[in-house]
Amino acid sequence: MKKKVLTAVLAAAMVMSMAGCGSTKDTTSTAGNTVSTDAQTESAAETTDGTEAASGATYKVGIVQYVDDASLNQIEAAIEAELDKKGEELGVTFDYGDYTFNGQADSTTLNQIATELVADNVDVIIPIATPAAMIMQNATEDNQIPVVFSAVSDPESAGLVAGNDAPGANITGTSDALDTDAVFDLMFAADPDIKSVGLLYDKSQDSAKKPIEEAKAYLEGKGVEVVEKTGTTNDEISNAADALAAAGVDAVFTPTDNTVMTAELAIYEKFIDAGIPHYTGADSFALNGAFLGYGVNYEDLGTATADMVVDILVNGKNPAETPVQTLSNGIATVNTETAEALGIDYSVFSDMCEGVVETQTAEEFE
């Protein structure tokens, strides 16, 4: 089912409220987590860790995407595909179709989605991206519904967990933490004579804070001028890109920033016209026209997130004892059209990364 937005959230709440009286399902508790099961079809099935799960059980899985962009869409698709695969293997159903929503980068919408998912008594919530994860965490502090986040760049600084090995009482997940220095190593390998670098990001995005601090430290260590431009909307990001082009910076860096990601298709040609390569913290930026995206494979990240959900719901794992997973992020994705337009030879990257992936400008991954 296609992702639903707020109006669908409210409509779904009304429908489920009316339909609840005729339900044939009861609830049982597994390792502190409420699990929805069909009492008439319950039987034992072997799980991946040797424990027994209820064959025919149905688990209600809430998926909350922060905003539409290529990376987050890729994560959601991978989560759903893996849940379908594991459900078939284990003889259970992960019902996400009725509980999948998109917050459209609006905190009011995200809070109302959280309220509806709690009212629906879902068995787990999977928020995708930091702002969604923070709101879902707040909504589950009292009820302790498990939260398994995906694509949170710095879960500790965001206050989601005490540390990667010490998750919160009901929260864990996967991180797309960025190796900022590695991005700049690529930048200076391609052009050792860089004198000024623009930093383009949304100052309200928690995911941007740490890599921007790391970027400043790296550049100051090289004696390179730093030009910061920020924005919180597409129009502001577009204006910030114009300002960086006017400033004549030699390159631009953006971390894993969802606001800039949603604006990339509208700004990448500005940088090409100005002869400025845009180095970024996710492969989706390159798909949307930026010269380079560096980071994790988001399909793998989504799959790993779904596997953690299965361990918690089916295998009875405790979120508080499940370490946050940080995937290797040594993949450089280069937009070959942009590279050609800028005249950049990126062959040097092959010895500096786990892999170099080539892409061309499009809206979504195929």
Rank of each mutant, 00 (worst) to 15 (best):
D154F: 11
D250T: 06
Q40M: 02
G173W: 10
A290T: 05
E228N: 14
T262G: 08
V324Y: 11
E141R: 04
K60L: 00
I276T: 07
L327T: 04
S36C: 10
V227D: 08
A332R: 00
S284N: 09
D206E: 04
I267V: 14
D242G: 11
V122W: 10
A44N: 13
A240I: 07
T180G: 12
G198K: 07
P323N: 09
P167S: 07
G163C: 01
D185V: 08
D283Q: 10
T172V: 11
N170V: 06
P131N: 08
N318S: 14
E156C: 00
G103S: 11
E358Q: 07
T256F: 02
E76T: 14
G330F: 05
L6H: 01
T115V: 12
V334A: 03
T109W: 06
T336E: 15
E363A: 15
I126C: 01
Q74F: 11
F149H: 12
N288Q: 14
N318K: 14
T338G: 13
T174K: 03
V249E: 00
F285V: 03
N73Q: 11
S157C: 01
G62R: 09
V224G: 09
E366D: 14
V197Y: 04
P167F: 01
K4I: 10
D179E: 13
T37I: 15
A240T: 07
F285S: 06
D351H: 04
I331L: 13
N318E: 12
A78T: 01
K60V: 03
Y201H: 15
S43E: 07
T280P: 10
N297C: 03
S29K: 14
L244K: 05
K209S: 15
A240Q: 12
E156N: 00
T41K: 15
I75N: 03
V357F: 00
T338V: 11
E269D: 11
T47G: 09
L110G: 01
A247N: 06
K270S: 12
D206L: 03
I145W: 04
T47Q: 07
A78N: 04
F149I: 04
A208R: 02
S55W: 02
Q104E: 12
S23I: 10
N318Q: 15
T232P: 08
A31E: 11
D206H: 05
E299V: 09
M16V: 10
E225N: 12
A243K: 02
G293T: 02
G343H: 02
T47R: 05
A31G: 10
N33Q: 05
A263E: 00
V124R: 06
N335E: 10
D307Q: 15
V122C: 12
T280C: 15
I276F: 07
A57M: 09
Y96P: 06
P131F: 02
T303G: 11
P319H: 06
G221C: 03
V348F: 13
A306M: 04
A129T: 08
F184H: 06
S43C: 05
S204A: 15
A139N: 03
L265P: 06
L117Y: 04
D68S: 11
